[in-house]
């Protein structure tokens, strides 16, 4: 299975933030869209960081001036990116090892999607359910 399998049914809309925005604004975006991470992009829409729930939590534990901090102080860098043609399996493995829960997807230099560990678990679960369904049908059909 490829990364593009997930994006095909998820849409290619990505919610992004700028590195200069405050955490207050960034958290507002995450709540508005009900998402666990924002891709931080530069003026050319190129990913420069990932702001995740975990990075926000770490920042909150560090300082009292939490909400006024710019995103760039808190976001995770460097950014690891995936391509739509990448194998799900390999990317999952990399995310597990690097403890990244979200990965931006770049196609021909453009940010076209974000894939979370949750998306991958769902895709794998559907795959396994599909295999079980097929086997059950064959056993019953014999």
């Amino acid at each position: 299975m490829k990364i593009q399998t997930i994006l095909a049914t998820k849409g290619t809309r990505v919610i992004t933030a700028q590195a200069g925005q405050t955490l207050r604004e960034a958290i507002g975006l995450m709540i508005q869209h009900n998402i666990g991470a924002l891709i931080v992009v530069d003026e050319a829409d190129k990913p420069v960081g990932v702001l995740s729930e975990r990075s926000i939590l770490l920042a909150a534990a560090r300082t009292d001036q939490f909400f006024e901090q710019p995103v760039r102080e808190v976001m995770r860098t460097p950014v690891i990116v995936a391509s739509p043609q990448d194998d799900l399996e390999s990317v999952m493995q990399t995310m597990t090892v690097k403890r990244n829960r979200h990965i931006p997807v770049i196609d021909q230099g453009q940010l076209i999607g974000i894939v979370s560990v949750g998306d991958m678990v769902k895709a794998r679960l559907d795959e396994y359910q599909g295999a079980v369904e097929t086997l059950e049908t064959q056993i019953v059909g014999e």
């Binding site: 299975m1 679960l125 559907d126 795959e127 359910q129 599909g130 295999a131 079980v132 369904e133 097929t134 086997l135 059950e136 049908t137």
Partner: peptide
């Protein structure tokens, strides 16, 4: 996927 993948 396989045929059953189309169910979920």
């Amino acid at each position: 996927g396989v045929i059953g993948t189309n169910k979920p």
